[in-house]
Amino acid sequence: MITQILFEVPALFEAGLKSGAISQIGGLLKDTATGQILAHLQESSLAHSLIGNAMLGAASPVNLALQAGSIIPTAYTAIQVTQLKSMMSTLQSLQIATLGVSLVGVGVSVAGFVYMHKRFNSLDNRIDTLIDTVNTGFENQQKASLRAHMSQVKGLVQLAKQAESLSSPDKEYSRVADSLADQASFFEGEIEFVSRSSQKINLEIFWQLAQVLMVCNSVRIDCRMRTNELLNAQTIAESAAADYQRLFGPLTPVSFDARPSDGAIASETIKDITDAASTKPYLIDYLRTMGVNGREYIQTLEGEVERPLLMLKVN
């Protein structure tokens, strides 16, 4: 059993990545020759406070391409700019092309419910406007249903946010995780509906729905981690990864009603997201088999104030 969770800085692995001795898949690094996992990439809560604002404004995955300086808001302090640049350079050295991985959660998402709630509100407003202004093929009844489900997710994320103030929050976390499973299924269905259309997919609508689905799954996993139900968290992560593969796999750069170059960035982001989701069960499995307490793990990451990205070295 691990009594103290020790993290490394990603830079330690850069030389191996450059030489090809180490390869990156989603959120993990493995020994190219033996196939053994060497480390798991893990975000700290600092990652979200740094890129959070940029993410909230991301109308499409095009905004998440890792281009130098593309997402640095002017209101940032010099320290924040340095930290953000360092984070983006780390992701680039790991050959991750987009910030999409941050949406799905690099490692276990520690975005926190406050941030998730904020992010959800932003999605809620945008979807509300989009389904009215864009010809999405949604019937009135479907629009109403979409709005109802958005409200339910919003309420559930709010409950998760407030659960910490309960004397025994575990029950509430479990209830939220259960209910979000239903919501995730609904949004999967909506994404399927949008993607199945014979016409090109409206990129913005697709992107907003995909983000709601990711919020649902991230909060579900987060809740299970906090109640130390790691096996269940792992099962959810596995099922989410399978869903993303099924939903996103058929999408190509020309599936969207966007310029091919924007479509190419969108498909790259979607692939990064799918890979990050596919490797998340490996991290949770490692934590579980090493006897790490899920709640403590998240608390450790929430307390990190200097490094936005960390590596959990596999022993």
Partner: peptide
């Protein structure tokens, strides 16, 4: 015990 398959990577 671990329940993931390394070969799936």
């Amino acid at each position: 015990c671990s329940s993931v398959d390394l070969r799936h990577l």
